[in-house]
Simulated assay, not measured.
Amino acid sequence: MKLFSDIFTSLEQGLQYSTTKQKAISDNIANVDTPNYKAKTVTFQDTLQKATLEINAYRTDARHFTFTANTNSSPVIEAKSTLVYNNNGNSVDMDKEMADLAKNQIYYNALIDRLSSKFSSLQNVIKGGQ
């Protein structure tokens, strides 16, 4: 019997993604006036593809997808080199960065709230429901 379910690992990966995204947004906001600075973004698709869960599946044909476990995934930061918003070659859109910052903060708070409730449930079980 597993004491901790895979939800803790999933929440941890979500927090890691949100933290990395926060760093990228902060870098973008800090360099809004830097000439030729290319805005950074965190790609979720690559992170999602790398974070496959282990599934016990029976393949009836060699052409079917294989299922593997890969828990060592980390978010990827990429520079957006094709966009230029300012005359100085800077690609930071301050309105978009502020919107992304707010969205990421809501996502992070939701993950923290979920993690907190999981630990509260675990604490309740340990105490015997008292």
Score class of each variant (00 low, 15 high):
S74W: 09
D6Y: 14
K23N: 03
Q16M: 05
D6L: 14
S26L: 14
Y17F: 02
A51K: 13
I55M: 12
V32C: 05
R63N: 05
T71N: 05
E54H: 14
D61F: 08
G14Y: 03
A69E: 06
S10K: 13
T43A: 08
T66P: 02
T47N: 07
S26C: 11
L11N: 00
P75L: 06
E54P: 01
E54I: 13
A39C: 11
E12G: 03
S18P: 00
Q22L: 12
S18N: 06
P35G: 10
Y17D: 01
K38V: 05
N70Y: 12
R63D: 06
G14E: 04
T47D: 07
F65L: 15
F67A: 12
K23Y: 05
R63W: 08
D61I: 10
T34D: 06
L11A: 01
K50T: 00
D61L: 08
H64N: 08
T47I: 14
T43H: 11
F8T: 06
T19N: 02
V32G: 01
Y17S: 00
T60S: 08
V76K: 10
Q49F: 14
I77S: 02
A79F: 12
Q16N: 06
Q45C: 12
T20S: 04
G14A: 09
T9D: 07
T43Q: 11
I7P: 01
N28G: 01
A39Q: 04
N31T: 05
E12D: 08
V32K: 04
T9Q: 11
D46T: 08
N72M: 09
K23P: 00
Q22F: 09
K50G: 02
N36E: 10
N31D: 06
D46V: 05
A39T: 03
D61Y: 11
Q45M: 15
Q13N: 10
A62H: 14
V42S: 01
Y37P: 02
F44D: 01
E78I: 14
V32E: 05
F67G: 05
N28V: 03
H64S: 11
K40Y: 07
T52Q: 11
D27I: 10
H64G: 04
L53C: 10
T60W: 09
S18A: 14
Y58D: 08
T41E: 05
D46M: 06
N56C: 10
L53W: 15
K38Q: 11
R63T: 10
T19W: 03
Q22P: 04
E78C: 07
P35D: 09
